[in-house]
Design a protein around this nucleic acid. Structure first.
Lengths: 143, 143
DNA sequence: CTTTTTGCAAAACCTTTGCACAACC
DNA sequence: GGTTGTGCAAAGGTTTTGCAAAAAG
């Protein structure tokens, strides 16, 4: 129930936190083994999954039959190189560039940027609608 | 080199084409076994991968350590139920609904729809820019 | 001392592969 | 008949698990 400290878990966390390449369990195992040669793969898996359950890691599958562990738990997206299989974060700046590039290709034009406009009902108008609805209800009740 | 007909491959294709739930190789195996009890899992894998290489199937990984096969090769997205693990297509209508819902929550307003506007240089203006550039080049060459 | 964690090894998966035989053309 | 596909079984790889010993609190 209560979590106890362990050097192995600390080492797994220290190893993966420094990384930006979202290593697999096997890579973490090899890395941590440099410090604790007797650590077992099972321990690495147990700790990685524990860290995930604690919300300190997220997992990604990219089609290479292995789980990749990512210390970045913010909402972000990933890029996989079709040639070397490397995995990297895509930040929003990159995403915006990708979208404009795609839109450029689709439109046959050079697109620099884009803006999205949402349409709906503002809070003021929503409040007025609610007032009217209540008024109608009162009238109905009074008749 | 040349592809020859096989009942097994046909059965794999027939089975998966009817499906909208993107089954795994194991599910396909169980299904086709109803018709060809002697088919082997290896054959199912070989044919699924062959169909993929032929461009008739796409594959999806959703984090359950298994490859899901999808006869829908158009550009679409997927939804996974966190509870039952079921996998389904998300069509663009659903996607638009999801985006407006998310935007609504973020903006604290009721958003019905949205439109994205891209900014750039139109083909006409691009052509004029090119002409000017060429003119400059000619001047430079002539001086 | 009690609970949690580990190391080891085995097992449980999913997927791929080698090979002799069968099916296709 | 020559080539492609199959079934079987074994092997490959990743992940999980049981259990006695070690570590942590």
């Amino acid at each position: 129930m209560t979590l106890k400290y362990s050097r192995q878990r600390q080492a797994v966390w220290d190893f993966i936190r420094e990384r930006h390449d979202h290593p697999t369990a096997s890579t973490v195992y090899e890395g941590v083994r440099q410090i604790y040669p007797n650590i077992s793969l099972g321990t690495v898996y147990r700790n990685l999954m524990l860290l995930k359950d604690m919300g300190k890691l997220s997992t990604i599958e990219i089609g290479d039959n292995a789980i990749h562990f990512d210390p970045n738990i913010s909402d972000h997206e990933h890029f996989v190189c079709r040639r070397c299989g490397s995995l990297a974060d895509l930040d929003t700046y990159d995403l915006k560039a990708v979208r404009t590039r795609l839109a450029s290709a689709a439109a046959g034009r050079e697109i620099d940027t884009y803006s999205t406009i949402y349409f709906g009902i503002c809070r003021n108008c929503l409040a007025q609608t609610t007032e009217k609805a209540e008024a109608v209800e009162i009238q109905g009740a009074g008749s």
